[in-house]
């Protein structure tokens, strides 16, 4: 019985990993999986309901929705990796250093900036930043990454704060090991697991945020298929062609769910506090 439960508990995490694996495979083998060129317009097949030829139907330019959803996976993976990557590159080092050295800069500058940034609702901040930078995928990623960085600072810093007083760190310090070595050699490896959990959950948020911005018309440039911009395009067809909104949204949902499941599973697995 115990093992069954344990399997069930980790099972959800495994399911998440499976979904993500599937997403990656779809993105890599998109040309083989897609039945049509995602950008090919067929003016004789406009707004067809799902059928044998077009599994998910066609949009208002006669493009194959299935193929566009398949290719859209590439944008989503990129969004997940790039946005979280940017957030980590900004957030983790800041968290490490401020947590280690503490003092004025930590208390009165960095943490207050983080507080201030977190006072802005995430999507509103991303919206404002990408409006500032102009629409486009790169800018949307930067906007999401910047909006997301504070949470990495907090997570990393929190870990460092509890690790810096550990015996082995104190010991290393007392024998004169350089700070850099302590930070990257001793503290960072031990602080990794919450960072990993955070990045998995962050990728879910990143994909959602990219889709939201694209949905608002601030994301990828046309005609690149992205799930969010497909929804933006299909929105006006809600009552005429509901299937055009159904599949791209379903794709976002499943993939975000995958990252959330994995993140949750990792949390159960890596974080002893959550393991009840």
């Amino acid at each position: 019985m115990k093992t069954v439960k344990r399997f069930l508990r980790t099972g959800l995490g495994l399911l998440g990993a499976l979904i993500i694996l599937l997403l990656i495979l779809v993105a890599i083998f998109a040309p083989a999986i897609a039945t049509h060129d995602p950008n090919a317009q067929d003016y004789n097949a406009i707004l067809q309901e799902p059928n044998a030829q077009h599994l998910f139907g066609t949009d208002d330019l006669g493009r194959d929705i299935f193929s566009r959803v398949v290719y859209g996976s590439r944008v989503s993976i990129e969004a997940a990796i790039v946005s979280v990557g940017i957030a980590m590159i900004i957030g983790v080092p800041i968290g490490l250093f401020t947590g280690y050295y503490r003092g004025f800069w930590d208390e009165w500058v960095v943490m207050r900036i983080i507080d201030a940034m977190q006072a802005f609702p995430f999507l509103i901040l991303a919206l404002a930043i990408s409006a500032v930078l102009g629409s486009g995928f790169g800018n949307a990623m930067l906007a999401i990454g910047i909006g997301f960085a504070p949470s990495f600072v907090r997570i990393t810093r929190g870990q460092v704060l509890s690790l810096r007083n550990m015996e082995y760190v104190q010991a290393a310090k007392s024998v004169g090991v350089k700070d850099m070595r302590i930070i990257f050699g001793h503290i960072l490896p031990n602080a990794l697991s919450p960072i990993i959990i955070q990045s998995t959950l962050g990728m879910a948020t990143g994909i959602l945020a990219e889709a939201s911005l694209s949905y608002l018309g601030l994301g990828v440039q046309p005609p690149t298929p992205s799930w969010g911009s497909m929804l933006n395009q299909a929105q006006s067809l809600l009552s005429v062609a509901p299937y055009a909104t159904f599949y791209p949204g379903l794709a976002i949902f499943v993939v975000v769910l995958g990252f959330n499941l994995l993140g949750d599973g990792l949390q159960q697995f890596l974080d002893p506090k959550a393991r009840k």
Binding site: N39, Q41, L61, G217, P223, Q235
Partner: peptide, 15 residues
């Protein structure tokens, strides 16, 4: 400009 209608227009011209 960013409206879906204009994007459609652009995509058709491109095609």
């Amino acid at each position: 400009s960013t409206t879906p209608a204009n994007e459609q227009f652009g995509a058709v011209i491109q095609n």
